[in-house]
């Protein structure tokens, strides 16, 4: 087993190298460059072509492709993630600054959706075929059918602008001393994102619970006279939870992507917001690093999940 996991871990290296090259290649194909992000269009309209060229040269945008790629890769290996072309700030610092916001939002949405999803999914499974089950299923499907930004905007209008229960967006405000001060800002984006994700978890819980309720050992437990509630919640749920954990674990890095739109709606200064701005500005070191980091996160997360499930479930045996 140890050998297997070491091999899987080593296998990540060529994979990541390949990905980094592809990302770089792709970004090289993008039209334009960071100049157009540095300056507003009217300003560019006032610059002469040779001035633009001089700026480009200074930013190292005229070196050959392969040299730039290896230059960048070499930097990463030495722990230097490069600098944002727009501000000259180290990318590591830019991303690190944004990670707490995204992490907060994702974890909150994840907790919310897990809690809700598992509870509702279990209810659905236990009351299979009931009105409750059917309406939950339909609600879940409606939930995933509404474009998330509309969901967000409507929530914003209702809860922030009309009822004035919650702030309209943003994260930290002047005068927030304690970590918990900004929690009201978190509620809406986390709820919206969480609700969108709930449906998936609910569905997954429901089917894996149905699956495990039919399993031999449940029948055995039942026949041994274990009370019904115990059968359902201790035996059924525990086994059903493994795939749910898998699902959640796998979604964690995916949340980097999932937060992109919600962060835009709620002016939440997270990695998704940074990414969208970087993409719009062709700030390629930044785009590359964020993409690279998110892929890395996904790969390591799936590795960890594999490891975890293997350790958790004694039925899985490896060579």
């Amino acid at each position: 087993m140890f050998v297997y996991f070491t091999r899987r871990l080593l296998y990540l290296i060529p994979m990541l190298l390949g990905i980094s090259f592809l990302i770089y290649l792709g970004l090289e194909l993008t039209p334009g460059d960071v100049i157009s992000y540095l300056l507003p269009p009217e300003a560019i309209a006032d610059l002469k072509p040779e001035e633009l060229m001089a700026m480009r040269e200074a930013l190292g945008l005229n070196d050959p492709f392969i040299i730039r790629y290896f230059y960048w890769l070499g930097g990463i290996l030495q722990g230097d993630f490069g600098y944002s072309l727009a501000s000259g700030v180290p990318i590591s610092q830019l991303v690190l600054d944004r990670i707490p916001a995204t992490l907060e939002l994702s974890v909150a949405a994840l907790l919310f959706s897990t809690l809700f999803g598992v509870i509702l999914g279990s209810i659905s499974a236990l009351k299979r075929g009931s009105l409750m089950d059917n309406s939950l299923t339909v609600f879940g499907m409606i939930g995933v059918s509404i474009p998330e930004f509309i969901f967000g905007l409507v929530a914003l209008v209702v809860f922030a602008l009309q009822l004035e229960w919650l702030p309209v967006g943003k994260r930290l405000m002047p005068g927030y001393d304690s970590y918990w001060d900004h929690m009201p800002h978190l509620v809406m984006p986390a709820m919206v994102l969480g609700l969108i994700m709930t449906a998936g978890v609910m569905r997954y819980t429901r089917s894996s619970m149905l699956d495990s309720l039919n399993k031999e050992f449940i029948r055995t437990a039942r026949s041994k006279g274990v009370p019904e509630w115990r059968v359902n919640f201790i035996h059924g749920l525990r086994v059903a939870l493994i795939p749910v954990v898998v699902l959640i674990g796998f979604r964690l890095p995916m949340l980097i992507g999932g937060t992109v739109i919600i962060e835009q709606v709620f002016q939440w200064p997270g990695v998704g917001d940074l990414f969208v701005n970087a993409v719009r500005g062709q700030n390629y070191p930044l785009v590359m690093m964020i993409s690279f980091l998110s892929v890395t996160a996904v790969l390591f997360a799936s590795f960890l999940i594999d490891l975890l499930t293997a350790l958790l479930d004694p039925r899985i045996k490896l060579e």
């Binding site: 592809l22 990302i23 792709g26 194909l29 993008t30 992109v260 739109i261 785009v287 993409s291």
Partner: peptide, 24 residues
């Protein structure tokens, strides 16, 4: 299988946004 793994390890929207900037 490897190629599909590479494609599928990207968070979907990040890959889409990247390709949008590349292809226009």
């Amino acid at each position: 299988l490897r190629i599909s793994e590479v494609v599928m390890s990207f968070p979907q929207i990040i890959l889409v946004l990247m390709l949008v900037t590349i292809l226009g």
